[in-house]
Amino acid sequence: MKTPEILLVDDNPADIDLTSEVLAQCKQRFHVNAVNDGAEAISFLRHQGKYTEAPSPDLVVLDLNLPRRDGRQVLSDIKADPALAKIPVVIFTTSQANSDISRSYELGANCYLRKPGNLTEFVAVVQSMAQFWLGFARLPQREKR
């Protein structure tokens, strides 16, 4: 089985580092890719520009408040594109506003997680997310490239 590809979309390098660190400590191996804004995320997913060689991710972990192209727009772009719609998207954000949670699910988010404020919980959330989506969950076969 191929190593699962994860795409982290977050403008906070500290969060990307921390999430990558935690993922690196999981039993399961992952390839972690990261981009810092919404427009980059879309280019990555569509293999455009400098991302022609980029892998197709098995899971997108998406922050909501992003520069250039907002996380909500990225989410709705992904779910509106038949080539991308099947990729599970986990919203991973500090917002716990009801409006953000409902809007995300309306737009087709597969899961909404709040970034916890302390390390222990952060580790627990990221590890369970990876274990659930890339361990237990059965996902459609990755697009051949």
Binding site: N12, N118, L119
Partner: peptide, 8 residues
């Protein structure tokens, strides 16, 4: 959150 998680 950054300060707390990274000092931890």
């Amino acid at each position: 959150r950054m300060v707390a998680t990274y000092t931890q």
